[in-house]
Design a protein around this nucleic acid. Structure first.
Lengths: 250, 250
DNA sequence: TTGTAGTAACGAACGGCGTTCGTGTCAAGT
DNA sequence: ACTTGACACGAACGCCGTTCGTTACTACAA
């Protein structure tokens, strides 16, 4: 079913001049599926800055215009990639009695997945969940809070803030990652150079104006991204817990 | 007019990673000062997407190449604009006994200023404070936490998370603002269209898979950006308070 | 079998972008 | 008056997202 040229097998042979007129090429069969997964591949391999319509098209041996039949534009492509990445998270069975533990696990998992895929987080900000996997995640968090006894309106606030925090932190991380990549350094070298510079710089601050920043420079750079993320997450979850109606033992 | 740059060398030392120097005079009228304020003007008037080196140069009746004598590149320009915007915040006298109230006021103030200047928030993420005003703000928050009795290492975590939250929220807001602008709508129309669409969409979700999102769609969209910001801020501050060593009355 | 309508693929181009290079220009130092 | 060298700047490089108009193919009607 691939013989696109001579349908009549017993007919005349294909005239050579027709063949040479156009270099016989079979059309590629593009699809949204293919475009999204190619985009994700580029994103993982080279970062968001390298993800362009042209780059994806090139990867598929075609021109950028060909993509627009399957994808509305770069923004939509990013959203599709984001939802696909969210598909990688695994959600446990909801257990409202362990809501805090489960939310902690969920946030950590989303954070992990976002970090694993370079800077897909940028696509997540200001995007209301509308894809299959985003909705699944939303239902998980929201349902958990409600079943744990939180009033719906407050539960939606809590969900919103929690996801802003996770995505925001991942995004910030991805910005650092992009700089690291741009400088051509590996993670360790970049981190040390970066942190070292900050430390040195803060130590040169005039101590009459910035005594605390200066004197505690070491503490300012003591914790890495992972520790910072978990500290902030704990702050938020504790805050939510303090607002959660107490469970009655009856 | 507060001169934050020239005259008094009481200012902060130049961070070593800044590549641009040239403390020089200008032949015609170009200067870093002028470039930064022109950039801010463009940013306010037309948004971050419209802020390009070319656009700023055009505003100054010159070519883009002329800017590079005073500014290392677009990134540095953004950082300089960001620091200038931070100069608009007013800080009270520190009073550790009212640390929570003062932090709340500070965060609200920064948020307000960031929102007032369209999307300068994007420049703030992943930028370690190195400008005059960023440092002033950092010293305020950090000093407040330390004077209130928090251990330095934890205080730096808290400061970091707090500023990530404020900037992250402002950034998300600016993304919405950019879309609104792109769609050519005013704030009210955009908001209603946006919110209405979400509500409608969530109501069409299959209730056996997304019961909570579907049934409480109204609650999901009930609060606006301001309310969401303050809810999250309260969560963080409560979390910090729970970790603050109790003041001893002795 | 032939004709035809629809659509995916795509080459080319438009109007942007950040940045660099080489050259012009002119104020200040000698 | 001459030299110097920092600044200004036109031009260009190599990207970008997106659109236009044309081809090449498929599916289906006659």
């Amino acid at each position: 079913m691939v013989d696109r040229r001579g349908s009549g097998n017993d007919g005349v042979p294909v005239p050579p001049w027709r063949k040479s007129r156009k270099p016989a090429q079979l059309r590629r069969q593009l699809s949204q599926e293919l475009i999204v997964s190619t985009g994700l591949r580029v994103l993982d391999a080279e970062g968001l800055d390298a993800l362009s319509m042209r780059r994806v098209a090139q990867e598929l041996d075609t021109g950028p215009a060909s993509l627009y039949a399957h994808v509305a534009g770069k923004d939509e492509l990013l959203e599709l990639i984001y939802d696909r990445v969210l598909g990688e998270i695994e959600l446990p069975e909801r257990d409202p009695s362990r809501w805090k533990e489960q939310l902690h696990g969920y946030a950590t998992e989303v954070h992990r997945v976002l970090r694993a895929h370079a800077d897909v987080a940028r696509a997540a900000l200001a995007t209301i969940p509308s894809g299959e996997n985003s909705l699944r995640a939303g239902e998980f968090v929201f349902g958990l809070l409600i079943e744990a006894g939180m009033p719906p309106r407050e539960a939606s606030l809590a969900m919103d803030r929690l996801s802003l925090y996770v995505v925001g932190d991942a995004y910030e991380g991805s910005l650092h990652y992009a700089r690291m990549r741009a400088a051509g350094l590996d993670q360790r070298t970049y981190f040390e150079a970066f942190v070292g510079q900050i430390n040195d710089y803060y130590r040169t601050l005039p101590s009459h104006r910035f005594p605390h920043l200066r004197d505690y420079a070491d503490d300012l750079i003591a914790d890495d991204g992972e520790a910072r993320f978990h500290y902030g997450l704990a702050l938020l979850l504790d805050g939510i817990e303090a607002r959660m109606p107490k469970a009655r033992a009856d």
